[in-house]
């Protein structure tokens, strides 16, 4: 069933994040735009709301950067759709962005996790 959460609980996606999520989704195999949107929404337990207009522009942007490639094909229910797949360059980028993201979240955790900050360990 559609378990749409209250709009205030959703988080608007930052540009860089959306790119990362698209790449991650495509890692599983070629997919069309609608599928990517559904997949992101589903996988984030409906926390992320994907604005479809932005999604298609993001797809286009990634295609322009040659991180993904696209071709028209048929969906499982025989609808015409534009399928996107990850390129070798896209794979590289995904790896790099993922590790960056992990470093960032770790750093954020370090800061947010320590309550006062006065004793924050310094590396």
């Amino acid at each position: 069933m559609t378990t749409q959460k209250n709009a205030t609980d959703r988080i608007a996606l930052l540009q860089g994040t959306l790119d990362l999520l698209i790449l991650k989704t495509l890692l599983l195999g070629p997919c069309h735009g609608q599928g990517v949107a559904r997949s992101i929404q589903r996988q984030s337990e409906e926390v992320f709301f994907v604005d479809h207009g932005s999604l298609y522009l993001a797809l286009q942007r990634l295609e322009d950067k040659k991180w993904i490639s696209a071709r028209w094909g048929l969906s499982e229910n025989n609808r015409k759709a534009r399928f996107y797949s990850l390129t070798a360059k896209g794979r590289e980028q995904l790896a790099e962005k993922t590790s960056e993201w992990q470093r960032l979240t770790r750093a954020m955790e370090l800061i947010l996790g320590s309550n006062t900050g006065a004793t924050a360990e310094e590396v």
Partner: peptide, 25 residues
């Protein structure tokens, strides 16, 4: 450069897929 018509086509396809999905639900 990709044509705007092609993009419009893609959006149309997206809407069709969504309709199918909602109908399935």
């Amino acid at each position: 450069s990709r044509k705007a018509a092609d993009f419009a086509e893609e959006i149309k396809a997206h809407l069709e897929l969504e309709v199918d999905e909602w109908k399935r639900e």
